[in-house]
Design a protein around this nucleic acid. Sequence first.
DNA 1: TCAAATTTTTAGACTAACCTAAAAATAAAT
DNA 2: ATTTATTTTTAGGTTAGTCTAAAAATTTGA
Lengths: 219, 219
Amino acid sequence: MLSKSEENYLKAIFHLSVKTEKGISTNAIAQQLDTKASSVTDMVKKLSEKGLVLYVKYHGVTLTDKGEKIAANVIRKHRLWEVLLVQKFNFNWDEVHEVAEQLEHIHSKKLINEMDAFLGFPKHDPHGDPIPDKDGNINFLEKSLLSTIGVNMKAVCIGVKDTSSDFLRYLDKQEIALGKEITVLEKEAFDNSMLIRIGANEFTISQQIATNIYVKNKE
Amino acid sequence: MLSKSEENYLKAIFHLSVKTEKGISTNAIAQQLDTKASSVTDMVKKLSEKGLVLYVKYHGVTLTDKGEKIAANVIRKHRLWEVLLVQKFNFNWDEVHEVAEQLEHIHSKKLINEMDAFLGFPKHDPHGDPIPDKDGNINFLEKSLLSTIGVNMKAVCIGVKDTSSDFLRYLDKQEIALGKEITVLEKEAFDNSMLIRIGANEFTISQQIATNIYVKNKE
DNA sequence: TCAAATTTTTAGACTAACCTAAAAATAAAT
DNA sequence: ATTTATTTTTAGGTTAGTCTAAAAATTTGA
Ligand SMILES: [Mn+2]
Ligand SMILES: [Mn+2]
Ligand SMILES: [Mn+2]
Ligand SMILES: [Mn+2]
């Protein structure tokens, strides 16, 4: 059975691997886990000996199939717990991540599969991120940034890039939530801010906001 | 924030303190936690420095109010998680303890209080043990061992002493469960076995069984 | 292409939580 | 009241996971 630390390393490497085909650098992992590069080197050696990553000195690491499966399972647990907290325990979507970081390391297959059923086999977590299935397969859905949507186009909010409390509470305040239809009314060339409509409300959002909201094109 | 290990020591001392007024010996704690006496000495010193136990060398430890409150809270979490697993996640009462040992160390006040509400503020866990309230108060209920019940008397099963899987599954097989009424029909002087009736079933149980079932006298 | 900057690894140390074996204190038995 | 047995503590070590500082390898870029 893997330690909490080993699981966190695999998860970090998994997340970093989504964006690139190359090996993941020691420094990137260190930054992701808020630790030092020398610690990463040590751990990566251990994971390599356990057959969970491929590691070539000075050239970064990649997950093996075995390591990838374990990482996906940790992420599955994290996201299912987040759904439970929001849907059953009255957590807001900005409150779940920290607790899920603890809960994702609970070892019990029965627990997670029963929870999955109890929640009705959700496909996405409260932030719109896909939940891996039992075998570790993830359904990466197509998504665009709101900032890329043209004037007079409609889109549906399906996720968030930034998941900080500050950002999520801003979205709450503006009543921007998953599933909401957003119409782009105007774009300001100078600062790339946008005038948008959600339901009956019209308001302006900055580029920084628009580049942190994932949407699905509507037509 | 306390480590998992520190919490486990406090919990062990709490459980051992229920049965005695005296200080808890190093050896007793070592046995409870399946560790060595020398390790206990180390940890007890640390807990003492943190003001969670009173420790006099060679004379055992007792919990301070602060330590007792923390221990009770860990037990509260353990038992509430057990209720969740049985009532919502289809766990049998012999399957919950191991997972609850992990879950009891999750740190989130909101989580445990929401869970408490979600479960309808249960007073007892699946094994009949009382669940401490938010402030750490426990309602120790009066209970007798089934072995002490006289012939022709009725009693209601309200708890179990042994919580091993083997014992709990034996109870399942015999359809002995919390809340069931048990009538003592005969007692065998030679081996202290008992003939009992539960519902329409009559059968004999050994003394070992009878001394591991808690009951409440009925009349 | 080769010196400078950057990244990565190694070397050595630290802490928490364990352990074994020996010493010290307490408890039990003659 | 001593001696003996038991319990507890101390001393010294181990492992996992972390750190800093220095050495080595790679990358950049003049
Ligand atoms: Mn999260
Ligand atoms: Mn999430
Ligand atoms: Mn239990
Ligand atoms: Mn229990």
